[in-house]
Structure formats: C-alpha cells, structure tokens
Design a binder for these strands. Structure first.
Lengths: 149, 149
DNA sequence: GACCAATGTTGGCTCGGCCAACATATAGTG
DNA sequence: CACTATATGTTGGCCGAGCCAACATTGGTC
C-alpha cells in the first residue's frame, strides 16, 4: 500500500485529489487499524485465518479446495494458514474416508471462540474507520463504496 | 490486498458488509486498473516512479532524502526507484558540491515527458474507477472518502 | 578534536496475493 | 478393463508496496 504515513513532507498536487489515491489512503488507514487490532487481540492470527474460520463457521466443514474457492484464497495459502490454525487447535484436518486425497477441515470449539473474539475486534475497527463521518454520511459512504467493487 | 477476484465461490456473510472489506475491495479494483494502465502504457514504470517524477516536477531538484520525505517513500526505496529512472534517462543524479554526501536529483526533459504521459493514463483510470457512479455520486464519494484519510 | 545527525546504500523482512510443479487420487472415456 | 484427464494438497518461488536495521561517509556542533 502506498505511503500515506503521518503526512510527513509536503503534498503532491498531482496525486492528492485523485480518487485512486484517496481510496488507497482510506485503505491504508483501514488496514493499519486492522493490523493493530489483530496485533493486539488476534493471538497472531491474520486476515487469512479469520476468513477461513468464518467460512467454516458459515458453511460447516469443507475440503481445503472448497475453502479456497469460497474464501478466494489460493490453495497454497490455504494449506499454510490451516497449518497454523491447526497448531493452535482452532481447526481439525482429517482425510476424507471416501476420498483419500481430500482433507476435511472442521472448526473446533476453540476455533469458534476465536472467531467470536475476532468478530468483536473487527466490529470495533469498523467504527474507528468510519469515525470521521456522521451516521448519515457513513450510510452514504457504505452505499457508494459498495458499488465500486 | 484481499482476494476480491471474480467472485468465485460464495459470499462470506461476516465480511461482505463490513466497511473495511468494501474499502479493500474498492482498493483492489482501483489498483488492478492502475497496474493494468502502467503495464500497458507505463514503460515498466510503477507508482514509486510516478510519485518521484511528480515531486521533481512540482518542487524542482531535490536530494534523495528530501524526495523521500516529500513523497512518503522510504530512503531505501527512493534509491532503488531512482536507479531505474536514471537508467531510463528520466532523471539525473549528481552529488551536491557543497554536501558531498548528498545527491541532487534533477528531472530530465524525457522525464517531464514521461510524467505527462503517465498523467494522461492516470486520468483515464480515475474515470474508470468511478464509472459505476453517477456524476453526483462521484462528487459525494470523493468528498466522503477524503475524510477517511 | 570529539561527538552526533544526516545521507545514500545494501540487504532483509512482512503481508496479501499469485503461479508452477509435483505426487497422488479420483472420475470419465475409449 | 486401461488410459487419460481432472482434482487435491503441498512445496517453493515470485511480485509490489512498504518498512527497518546496519553501515560508511560526510557535515555540523559542542
């Protein structure tokens, strides 16, 4: 992400008004807050882990390939993230008896707990991110930014 | 940046409404368009190069350290990017006679040309990014997202 | 003259994302 | 049935943008 740092130096005219820059600045702030939140309350977990836990909670156990497809995370990254989740006992991996090549991933009770904790943290961050806007502006912004996807 | 890919798989409820996610999705699209633009018309240049050229055009020759401060780019990254710009003759580096440790960077005419070309490319991308919104919505969005920095 | 700060450079790290190759297993087709 | 194609998990590597630590050199200040 670009360097939106603490506004050191002067302002680059060519850049400061461009929507792409404004978006990237907002993203930068948003992800700084997210990183801080994960750092403080995340037990070393990061975005990938959260998304995998959320997918398991929402759709139940699934193979790694399906998890990858549903979360948009590459198979290889799913493997790595699951290894970390497994080592924290937040997730279990067992090979599908009907499909020996496939591994079925299951959320453990500890995993469900961790997910809830992360949810709370993330909710707090949403408020922080939108704090500069009034409630009405927040609704407007969410509406508009939704269409830019 | 998160995987906002072409909406493969299903939608993660926990995530899809959160402003942080929407912002990162917009950023993802924005930077995909930027990358494509630089790829197509950028002569191998990227964001750092553009920002350095823009700073030189706006404020004139400067030391690398000052360039870093004014653009928010780390000294080390400034060094690398300038080396590439210099090898394309878009920029000149000469050591300051009064401060032998300092190097003064100057925009060449070719550099100024390149900057203008990139400006045009970037302007086109701004329109593309905001295309999903009406003109009034675009103004609203720019106003709101400006406050999230 | 002895420190301390600034400068440019090198090298390395993170995070999110992406791709290639590979062994293995399953499914589909002749 | 045999053969082939596809799916799966894993390893290892690459990228861009950002950030930091160390270092030699240079400058300025007590």
């Amino acid at each position: 992400m670009p360097a939106h740092h603490d506004e050191a130096g002067r302002t680059l005219d060519r850049v400061k008004e461009r929507p792409t820059w404004l978006i990237s600045r907002a993203f930068s702030r948003s992800s700084a807050l997210l990183a801080a939140g994960f750092e403080a309350h995340g037990d070393g977990l990061r975005g990938y882990h959260y998304r995998l836990l959320a997918a398991l909670e929402q759709w139940g156990s699934a193979s790694q390939a399906d998890l990858g497809r549903d979360t948009g995370i590459d198979r290889s990254d799913v493997t790595a993230a699951l290894t970390e989740l497994e080592s924290r006992n937040l997730v279990e991996r067992r090979t599908d008896p009907d499909h020996k090549r496939r591994k079925i991933v299951t959320l453990t009770p500890q995993g469900a707990d961790a997910l809830l904790r992360l949810d709370a943290v993330l909710d707090g961050i949403q408020e922080e991110v939108l704090a500069p806007l009034t409630a009405a502006q927040q609704r407007q912004f969410v509406d508009l930014v939704s269409r830019l996807g």
